[in-house]
Design a protein around this nucleic acid. Structure first.
Length: 573
RNA sequence: GUGCCUGUAGCUCAACUGGACAGAGCUUCUGACUUCGGAUCAGAAGGUUGCAGGUUCAAAUCCUGCCAGGCACGCCA
């Protein structure tokens, strides 16, 4: 099934080519988009103004020629010219109704599988071993997971890869510190907490004790050279950390197809260097090996340290080469915070020089800050992710207990879990990721207004309506009656429902889940107006069924949309 | 110093990437029937889109210069 925008845009393109065969259609933005205001019709095309310039005609004349000479597209009742040359499409209510009926019969709600046959690798979350996941990790995890779900639904083959920070200099300090400070029982009970404590102690000692620092470096070298004891210890750190990460992921509903840390590409690093050298891309500088990127106006990319060690640019290049060879992806997408922009530009450029043609995309988001500034593990002012989730659930529980005292306690907890986690995720997904974000409890856990619970509430009300309908009209099936869009409120709701496929595609293409979140909130608001202002169970037969059908379609769209954002929708809240 | 990003209602954020009069939520104020779930709805108030120029039919959006904040700029990741 084609989307509305695709259908109308295709018509526009063909109509324009027919009326102005001399024009270069490909160069013009002939797409048709939804209007912002009902007064301007349902969909609009703004191409006449740009086309007029190209054709040396008046914009309104261009628009008029389209209106006069071409047959109207299917479903369009009126095509009008407004302002300087806007083309406003007014759709026929009947046709909209038939279309909604078709969407209702479609499992996919009219969403085309545009990603069919394509593969995308999504690299997100990627926490560091031996450190707790904190509020800084939630954005990558939640945004990455939403992109994962959206692409999957659009038909892509998605490989979500958790590229763990499981290699690097911190392991020298950790290994040495572990042998000196670790408490075995504490490590078993709460591994990351214990590793964190050990790390901080070891780090602090290294600052005042030069020999300690050297010893840590020696342990790191032994690890890198494959020393059995260190290797085993490292393996234990990774496994224990992963166990805890899994607990958080299970809670968040996040699943990875691959968990390949940086260490996975270890043996490939010398080969990457060899390849760079063979192609004459790398050169020595101050004892290190770099790739100059002057033509790209970038600072050099350092691929081997002066001590012979490799750094993360090398690892990331090896990762791309490995992925390209193994999975033949069309795209590789990274979701990280803003600080890594330069790094990604550099190593993407190096990859291209090495002949990688896969589309490489960096989706970045603003670093999470605390009102008093940034936080770091070393400073000890981190807010752990699990604590955030606990707090979210307990705040939600307090509200559920207050508003639904008759609900069994177990169900209250389940509702609070969905509402609390939904609120946290929605808070991150509903805004432009590139803006600065200052963490506050109230913002992260907002439960009213533009928030997940508002959407979940709308779903719950619809479920209730559907129950009551079955109760009062046993044996009736709404779909035996046609959908009618006589009231402007119904029509507005119907129109909005039909926008879902276009919005979803745009959100995925631009890697912006916030577009989907915005749409869902808008849809829920439109539905609430509908719900509050029009009777349905009390409406006459026929109208009643039509409205119940709109309820059903709204619920399915909201549920699907929220599901694609990783947010659950309990039947009762 | 260079590069990237941000600046929109009192507060938190939108604005389909150049489109029509800049929209929501929170807060404040006024209302909501014989009740389908009031975690709701209807309405009011709230703006020189950081500042100054420029580009054009059209600028929050593009260009130039300032101001304020964030981040990054070879051996951490």
């Amino acid at each position: 099934m084609q989307t509305l925008e695709q259908e109308l845009s295709a018509w526009m393109r063909q109509a324009f080519a027919a009326v102005f065969p001399q024009a270069d259609v490909a160069a013009l933005p002939l797409n048709v988009v939804a209007t912002t205001e009902a007064a301007h019709g349902d969909y609009q095309c703004n191409a006449a103004m740009a086309a007029a310039k190209l054709l040396k005609l008046k914009p309104r004349d261009v628009a008029q020629a389209i209106v006069d000479q071409a047959a109207l597209p299917e479903g369009v009742a009126r095509l009008e010219i407004a302002g300087p040359g806007f083309l406003n499409f007014h759709l026929a209510a009947d046709w909209l109704a038939r279309r909604l009926e078709a969407v209702q019969g479609d499992e996919r709600l009219g969403v085309p599988a545009v990603g069919q046959g394509k593969t995308v690798i999504l690299d997100y979350s990627s926490p560091n071993v031996a450190k707790p996941m904190h509020i800084g990790h939630i954005r990558s995890t939640v945004i990455g997971n939403a992109l994962d779900r959206m692409h999957r639904f659009l038909g892509w083959r998605v490989l979500a890869d958790n590229h763990l920070g499981d290699w690097g200099t911190q392991f020298g300090l950790l290994i040495l510190g572990f042998r000196t400070f670790a408490d075995a029982a504490a490590y078993e009970a709460s591994p990351i907490e214990e590793l964190e404590r050990v790390y901080v102690a070891s780090y602090n000692r290294s600052k005042e004790d030069e020999s300690w620092k050297n010893a840590a470096r020696a342990e790191l070298v032994k690890l890198q050279q494959g020393d059995a004891a260190n290797r085993q210890l490292w393996q234990s750190f990774v496994e224990h950390s992963l166990r805890e990460f899994e607990r958080v992921y299970a809670r968040l509903g996040v699943k990875f197809d691959l968990v390949r840390g940086e260490s996975y590409y270890n043996e490939k690093l010398p080969g990457v260097i060899a390849q760079l050298q063979a192609q004459g891309l790398a050169e020595e500088s101050e004892g290190a090996l770099i790739v100059k990127l002057e033509a790209e106006k970038l600072t050099p990319c350092l691929v081997r340290k002066s001590d012979g060690g490799y750094n993360y640019a090398t690892t990331d290049i090896a990762t791309v080469l490995g992925r390209a060879a193994e999975f033949l992806p069309d795209e590789v997408v990274y979701v990280t915070d803003e600080r890594q922009q330069l790094h990604f530009k550099q190593f993407f450029t190096v990859c291209r020089k090495l002949g990688v043609t896969t589309k490489l995309q960096h989706v970045w988001f603003g670093l999470m800050r605390l009102p008093e500034g940034t936080f770091s593990t070393r400073e000890g002012n981190v807010i752990k992710l699990e604590r955030l989730l606990d707090e979210a659930e307990s705040r939600a529980l307090a509200i559920v207990q207050q508003t639904s005292p008759e609900m069994p306690p177990e169900q209250q907890r389940e509702v609070a879990r969905c509402v609390g986690l939904g609120a946290v995720k929605y808070a991150d997904l509903s805004q432009n990721p590139q803006s600065l974000v200052t963490f506050t409890w109230d913002k992260a856990l907002a439960l009213e207004g533009n928030s997940a619970p508002y959407l979940q509430y709308a779903c719950a009300r619809i479920a209730s309506v559907q129950d009551k309908y079955r109760e009062r009209f046993p044996g009736s099936e709404p779909t035996t009656q046609p959908i009618k869009l006589d009231d402007p409120i119904e029509r507005g709701l119907g129109l909005k429902l039909l926008r879902f496929p276009d919005v979803l595609q745009r959100a995925a293409e631009n890697f912006r889940p916030s577009l989907l979140a915005d749409y869902l909130f808008d849809l829920a608001q439109t539905y609430s107006t509908f719900y509050q202002n029009l009777p349905f169970l009390k409406a006459e037969a026929g109208v009643r069924e039509s409205r119940v059908r709109l309820c059903d379609l709204t619920a399915r769209t909201l549920r699907r949309g929220l599901n694609l954002l990783g947010i659950e929708t309990p039947a009762r809240i």
